[in-house]
């Protein structure tokens, strides 16, 4: 199954991001700044997945993401998997790892929070027990399903 998918537009070297929730595919494109890349990018959306029903896949040629970049995905696509491809072979599967602290990623819904009124990075702390994100500055909590990523 995995191999068949990858063969559709097999890449020699690069990264295949799999198991993105279909509705979040283009958000992932923006979060990783893929529109600014020069290398070949294939985006698949609304593909069938036994795991999540409907999913997105993004294939990026000649690009390997840093851990910091991967952690940006944790908010919108926590179950995504990055397949690292070398010479047409998956050499590593990296899960998205939720960092304890997210900087400049999550949007604070509180209009009276300092972070919405100053040119500054937001900071949110992830609480794994309740799956919530808490604003470092105003303590507002957002749940994993209502969390919004900064534009």
């Amino acid at each position: 199954m995995q191999n068949k998918e990858l063969l559709v537009a097999a890449i020699k070297n690069g990264t295949v991001i799999d198991h993105i929730p279909a509705s979040k595919t283009f958000e992932v494109v923006n979060l990783l700044g893929l529109t600014d890349l020069k290398s070949a990018i294939t985006i698949g959306c609304n593909l069938h997945s036994e795991k999540v029903g409907s999913k997105g896949i993004i294939k990026v040629e000649d690009k390997f993401f840093t851990d910091e970049e991967i952690s940006r995905l944790s908010v919108v696509a926590p179950n995504a998997v990055l397949n690292i491809i070398t010479d047409y072979t998956v050499v590593e599967k990296k899960p998205v790892i939720m960092p304890a602290t997210l900087r400049g990623i999550v949007h604070c819904p509180n209009p009276k929070c300092i972070c919405n009124n100053e040119p500054m990075q937001t900071i949110f702390h992830y609480n794994g027990k309740n799956h919530t994100f808490q604003c470092h500055y105003c303590n507002t909590e957002v749940t994993a399903d209502t969390v919004k990523v900064k534009p």
Binding site: I97, A100, G128
Partner: peptide
Amino acid sequence: MHILDVVSENVCIF
């Protein structure tokens, strides 16, 4: 969901 406890960042703020 995987959680990596990046303790160092909190320690730094503190």
